[in-house]
Simulated assay, not measured.
Amino acid sequence: MPAAMREPYATPQVAAAFSAFPDAARERLLAARTLILDVARRTEGVGAIEETLKWGQPSYATPETGSGSPIRLGIPKSDQFDWALFVHCQTELTRRFAAHYPDVFTFESARALLFRADEAIPEDALRHCIAMALTYHLRR
């Protein structure tokens, strides 16, 4: 998606966080941000998304409805991967993601989906995982 068509950032600090990401990962992280915001709009019960920073990473929460578990975007510790979508490690989300998509994603224990910048984003599967996170408290 061209930069001019992206939704404005919630704060200058969130914009700075995206600017600070390595070039190889930034476009993929921005694409994931777009998916999160789009899935939130299209998913019943989610409500408004709050975009903030948590641990220096862009974070997406559902404070209006409390429907979901926060999602964060960032760089994983593993140098084999370029970017990650993090979820709360005390949820069952990565286990649920793995049950649906065992051969689609690489998982980092109970906390993240890991990606390489040179690989295509499995958009339909990632949209489903995002929706599961954003409605986690509705479906427990």
Results as ranks from 00 to 15, higher is better:
Leu30Val: 15
Pro63Lys: 03
Gly68Lys: 04
Ile49Lys: 08
Cys89Ser: 11
Tyr60Ser: 01
Thr52His: 00
Gln80Thr: 08
Ala40Glu: 12
Gly45His: 13
Thr65Met: 04
Ile36Pro: 07
Gly66Val: 01
Leu30Arg: 12
Ile71Arg: 02
Trp55Cys: 00
Gly66Asn: 01
Trp83Thr: 01
Thr52Gly: 01
Tyr60His: 07
Cys89Pro: 07
Leu85Phe: 05
Leu35Trp: 08
Val87Glu: 03
Gly74His: 05
Arg72Leu: 05
Leu35Asp: 12
Ala31Val: 15
Pro70Leu: 09
Phe81Cys: 00
Arg33Gln: 10
Arg41Glu: 11
Cys89Leu: 10
Leu53Cys: 04
Trp83Asp: 07
Gly66Thr: 01
Thr34Lys: 14
Thr65Gly: 00
Leu73His: 02
Leu37Lys: 13
Leu85Met: 15
Gly56Asn: 06
Val87Pro: 00
Tyr60Arg: 03
Asp79Lys: 15
Ile75Thr: 02
Pro63Ala: 04
Ser69His: 02
Gly56Glu: 04
Val87Gln: 08
Ala32Pro: 03
Ala40Cys: 12
Lys54Val: 05
Ser69Tyr: 04
Trp83Ser: 05
Ile36Gln: 09
Gly66Ile: 01
Leu35Ser: 08
Pro63Gln: 08
His88Val: 02
Gly45Trp: 13
Ala61His: 00
Thr34Ile: 06
Arg42Val: 07
Asp82Gly: 10
Leu30Trp: 12
Ala40Asp: 14
Pro76Ala: 08
Arg72His: 03
Lys77Gly: 14
Phe86Cys: 04
Arg42Asn: 15
Thr62Met: 11
Leu37Gly: 03
Glu51Asn: 05
Glu50Leu: 11
Val39Leu: 12
Asp82Ile: 07
Glu64Arg: 13
Ala48Thr: 13
Arg72Phe: 00
Asp79Leu: 09
Lys77Val: 10
Tyr60Pro: 08
Arg33Met: 09
Pro63Ile: 06
Thr34Phe: 09
Thr34Gln: 15
Pro76Phe: 06
Ile71Val: 09
Gly68Glu: 11
Gln57Phe: 03
Arg33Glu: 11
Phe86Ile: 13
Glu50Phe: 06
Phe81Met: 06
Ile75Glu: 00
Leu73Cys: 01
Asp82Ser: 09
Thr34Met: 10
Glu64Val: 14
Gln57Arg: 14
Glu44Thr: 14
His88Thr: 10
Ser59Asp: 09
Leu85Asn: 06
Pro63Phe: 04
